[in-house]
C-alpha cells in the first residue's frame, strides 16, 4: 500500500527535469498514487525464482568495426537548434 507524498512528487519531478506547479503536484500525487497502487497488484505473484526479462529476443552483443563514416556535417547538426553561436549550440550560463 503505497502512499506517495507531495514531497516525493516534487523530488521525482526534479529528477525528471520537469517544473510542475503546486496545482499539478496536487493532481499528479493523486494520479500517481492510483497508478502505483494498481501496479502493486503485481505483488500477488511470487517471482522469487523468476529471471527478469529485459529483452524478448536472445540478443548477443552486436559489435562492429570502429570505422569513421560520413553522417551529418556541423551545419546540418545546428540547423534545428533553438540557439547557436560560432558553430556551436548555445545554452544559458551554467554557473550562477
Amino acid at each position: 500500500m503505497s502512499n506517495i507524498s507531495k514531497e516525493q512528487v516534487r523530488h521525482v519531478a526534479h529528477l525528471a527535469r520537469l517544473a510542475i506547479s503546486d496545482e499539478e503536484v496536487e493532481k499528479m500525487t493523486k494520479q500517481l498514487d492510483d497508478i502505483i497502487h494498481y501496479a502493486e497488484s503485481l505483488n500477488e505473484l511470487n517471482t522469487d525464482d523468476v529471471e527478469p526479462t529485459t529483452h524478448v529476443l536472445d540478443l548477443k552483443n552486436v559489435m562492429r568495426k570502429d570505422q569513421p563514416r560520413k553522417w551529418i556535417d556541423k551545419e546540418d547538426a545546428l540547423k534545428n537548434a533553438p540557439d547557436k553561436q560560432d558553430g556551436q549550440f548555445r545554452v544559458p550560463s551554467i554557473l550562477e
Partner: peptide, 27 residues
C-alpha cells in the same frame, strides 16, 4: 539557468500524459 531551461522547456513542451508517464517511470 541551464537547469531552469531544461525544466521549463520540457514542462512547456510536454502534455499531461507524457509528463505523467515520465514521472511514473522516473519514480
Amino acid at each position: 539557468s541551464m537547469l531552469d531551461m531544461f525544466k521549463r522547456s520540457r514542462s512547456e513542451g510536454f502534455g499531461d500524459e507524457v509528463k505523467r508517464r515520465i514521472m511514473l517511470g522516473t519514480f
